[in-house]
Write a protein that binds this DNA or RNA. Sequence first.
DNA 1: CTAATAGTGTCTATTAGACAGTATGTT
DNA 2: AACATACTGTCTAATAGACACTATTAG
Lengths: 274, 274
Amino acid sequence: MSEFQSEEEFLKAYNPNDYDRLSLTTDILICSVSSEEEENYRKLSKKYFSILLVKRDDYPFKGKWCLPGGFVRIDEELEDAPKRILASETNLHNIYLEQLYTYGSLDRDPRMRVISTSYIALVDKNRLRDKLLPNASWFNVTLLEDEKKMNITLDNGEETISLVIKKTLREQTTDRYKYTIVKNDKLAFDHPLVIAAGLSRLRNKVNYTDIVFNMMPEYFTLGELQQVYEVILGKKLLDPAFRRIIANKVEKTTKVKTGEGHRPSALFRYKVTK
Amino acid sequence: MSEFQSEEEFLKAYNPNDYDRLSLTTDILICSVSSEEEENYRKLSKKYFSILLVKRDDYPFKGKWCLPGGFVRIDEELEDAPKRILASETNLHNIYLEQLYTYGSLDRDPRMRVISTSYIALVDKNRLRDKLLPNASWFNVTLLEDEKKMNITLDNGEETISLVIKKTLREQTTDRYKYTIVKNDKLAFDHPLVIAAGLSRLRNKVNYTDIVFNMMPEYFTLGELQQVYEVILGKKLLDPAFRRIIANKVEKTTKVKTGEGHRPSALFRYKVTK
DNA sequence: CTAATAGTGTCTATTAGACAGTATGTT
DNA sequence: AACATACTGTCTAATAGACACTATTAG
């Protein structure tokens, strides 16, 4: 039983340093979609799913790539930390941001005990007016996945990062996997785990939400939209089925996209229904 | 640029106290299923979904109920903290445990800045041999939910706790809600939010995983299993549809449950397929 | 016999998958 | 005309929802 008579009295006598204190950071998986022109003028530009990485110019992990992130300040709301970092990294506000997972292995940071809450952010690259920070770079993502592992390849045009992550079913009763890094040469910390978790979350959510539209420009063709779904899901979709599914999520505009060497396509816009 | 020549040198000079340090706690939503006998001997005993709460006997929030939890130790893996608390609270190991969400509002603890990573745990009450700790109690949960709010009623036979939580769609593109506590007299901290998040997660996961079996005894009838699904989903299910869906998740045993005032039912067991 | 649950057969409605076809721009 | 994509019609397969029916026990 407490020796205090009231909550005020208790709080006055309370010393926060009586308990273990540790550092909290946040890491952000910033995702977008990028295009690469094809040699054949008639073909559609190839779409890639891409993430933003930052090159560390200081210890620990000097010279390695990592997710944008930083310390959570003691006087800052948890979610404000990734927002602050996102704003400093992209000059964008009002970005789709979702908490992913909190990592707390004892050895995840060689400096000291650090817990990290990771977030996933989705941005439309067309809204990015300002240049990236000098150390930042977009990497195109290729994900090959099966029941037992994920092969992730990241490429920014100059450098290729290859990750292999082993998947172990945590229990028979769910779909939850424990991810273990099997191969990683160029990424700092446990960031391959964050990338794996983020990509899985996205692949999943794409099927029952409208999140892709956070990465789309205002006007887009259904072909482009389908490509984005395909690149996230890692498989081809059938046109009629795709169009049936997204039919009530988009609205046709009077605009048309022409000059592509084939039949022009109508431009659509995301339709808010709820 | 760094003035250090190597990572070892850097780490040697590193002082953790140069950065903000805060306290991390963990809260656990321990879930189970309980039965209550009906007056009519022929009727099946009514099933309830229930959670474990602890009465605080100290400030802050003295006298209020809260989720079992505690501080994460600086030399302890993040997930070991809920495991340790779970073991001390129930004497059970190897329990289904899943990270829910990390809460970090500035004002969530009147003592100081505390971040809390919440977990959901599913237990089979029949495996609980030891008595509960003196301050702990199981509360039956009744959840009424619509697009705009959740009405949660918790009842342990002596006391009734009534919560109202407002749901606001965070963005048009997803199903994510921001939960705001509208009514809460008897629960400490932001624990109503944890309960709301946990119940939502469970309602969702029940549809595409086998997690319910973590709350079931080894042998059960399909009627009992259906009741558990119904109580978690908050709606009646049709027998044939239900049996179709769980058909390949369970296997019939030779055991039979009799003496219930109606046709005996076969006892089933969870079948591991993967 | 009756109340209550156990368990099954089958029809219908809805949704997803597959394929074939027509339309229309650029070079 | 040839190419490449835009866009649509329709058949089929798989799944979910609904209802009606039979079965079997304790009291």
